[in-house]
Design a protein around this nucleic acid. Structure first.
Lengths: 265, 265
DNA sequence: TCGTCTTGTCTCACTTAATGAGATGAAGTC
DNA sequence: GACTTCATCTCATTAAGTGAGACAAGACGA
């Protein structure tokens, strides 16, 4: 039962090094990372570093930045990243729908999926009205429990699994987001009763709220969640109904199409 | 001069194997890849394969598919992919602008960057009118020379570099896209004279056309290109002017903001 | 134009660290 | 409950990655 999840260095170490290089490069943002950044953060010799850099570059996972001696993430990652976000083909299906909702209703719409104890944002489409949100962009992650999409995902996991996740995340939820397990569980009950999640009040982003609906497969397991975020002042009863109905329609059609795809060939 | 670019296996081989695993997984699409897919495509033992899989999974680059024994790309790639597409911060700057253009004008707008001898699509925003395009989504690549965005990029590279690329791509351009170097060079002249590129007629997608403008840094080097694609029937003189002006304005503002960012600290 | 600094590559001996074969345990499937 | 497939383990082998330092190639300022 006790997890030895400290850092047992899984798998071949060359691999771990390579991935670490990618992470360091990513931290550099659009400035990239320099040789010294790598050498400082990791402990192996310059030749070894260059061997790895060369290999990663040859595979298209890194490229040289315009400034000599700096490296940036390669475009191969773009391709893989686009693929990675498309589990079950959901992202492709969701993209135009999120856009349509954002255009029609003016709020910002999101597609989330579960990633271990986190929710990961697969796609965003901002609307005309400005919003604050926990995730800035595709790829953003936040602990399950934070945000309405999280709740929608959690609600349809098994009871045991949900508890495990909540226990795991409890500390972060409390310290970083001022969220209590009790309030999250209350909202989960609401989801199970009414089929949608509302924003749970924490210390963060108090002026914003939102709605989320789950994307369930034929057996009731959550493939993802569609959510939206808006200023509290915009959340009138009629607007809530509009948004909910819009999201439910789009999700319904997505599911139909997804099943079509999944059973192809 | 003679390139020994066959396949000298750059860098550590573990790395190459790992990347190959990711590629194979990507090819599986939303179905993922099975153990046999890997074992068939690569030649090493099952334990070794599992060691790599385990390592990649631990790093978040792979995850288990819902179906046992199949693997999919992990969400860590999403994060890196989002970063990778944001060279010079262009993508973040372009995203809302492409959206605004697509909404206002109804056509589909794209951001491209150079990737070696290819152009890579960093961002797409589809408009209300349907289009056919060479790239389906973010991450799509096509040889420099194909499409108006390519032309806009090529035009602002050095003469020597451009020639090198065109010679390199000549065969593909001819065979896959029915494009002659001469017609491409003619359009490059047009870009240099007028500052924008039009679609060059090839055998592919004959009903569609488009426009593209370069995104140049302060020294005149191309950071990328913004392009749009539309049905030929929509390309009236007035619409062309509208689109061109719209793209030019957005690109101009992008550049200003990008410079602000680049010189920060 | 010429130093000078930093980036990138090479060589070679070393030994760590990845590998293969096969057996064994776990998880579904019929 | 028997069978198949997936996943892990052990251990000897050795291939493969590694470090130290020297060397080459650009970039850059004076």
């Amino acid at each position: 039962m006790s997890a030895k999840d400290s850092a047992p260095a899984q798998g071949p170490s060359t691999l771990a090094h390579a991935m670490q290089i990618l992470q360091i490069t990513a931290r550099g943002g659009y400035r990239g990372a320099s040789v010294d950044d790598y050498l400082d953060a990791m402990d192996f010799s310059r030749p070894t570093l260059y061997r790895l850099l060369k290999g990663l570059k040859a595979q298209g996972f890194l490229r040289s930045a315009p400034i000599r001696g700096r490296y940036m993430l390669g475009y191969e990652l773009l391709v893989l990243g686009a693929q990675a976000g498309n589990g079950a083909g959901l992202r492709d299906l969701a993209r135009p729908r999120l856009l349509a909702l954002a255009q029609r209703l003016g709020d910002s719409f999101y597609l989330f999926a579960r990633d271990g104890v986190n929710a990961v944002c697969l796609e965003v489409q901002n609307g005309a009205y400005p919003v604050g949100s926990f995730v800035r962009a595709t790829g953003g992650r936040l602990p399950l429990g934070v945000g309405q999409a999280s709740i929608a995902l959690l609600a349809y996991l098994g009871e045991a699994e949900r508890q495990e996740i909540l226990v795991n995340n409890a500390e972060r939820l409390r310290d970083e987001f001022s969220l209590s397990i009790a309030s999250i569980e209350a909202e989960i009950d609401h989801v199970l009763a009414h089929g949608f999640a509302r924003g749970v009040e924490g210390s963060q982003l108090p002026e914003y709220t939102g709605l989320a609906v789950p994307v369930l497969d034929h057996s009731g397991h959550p493939l993802g969640a569609m959510s939206c975020s808006m200023l509290k002042s915009r959340m009138t009863d009629t607007h809530r109904q509009e948004v909910l109905q819009g999201m439910r329609e789009e999700v319904g059609e997505m599911i139909d199409q997804a099943h079509g795809l999944l059973y192809l060939d």
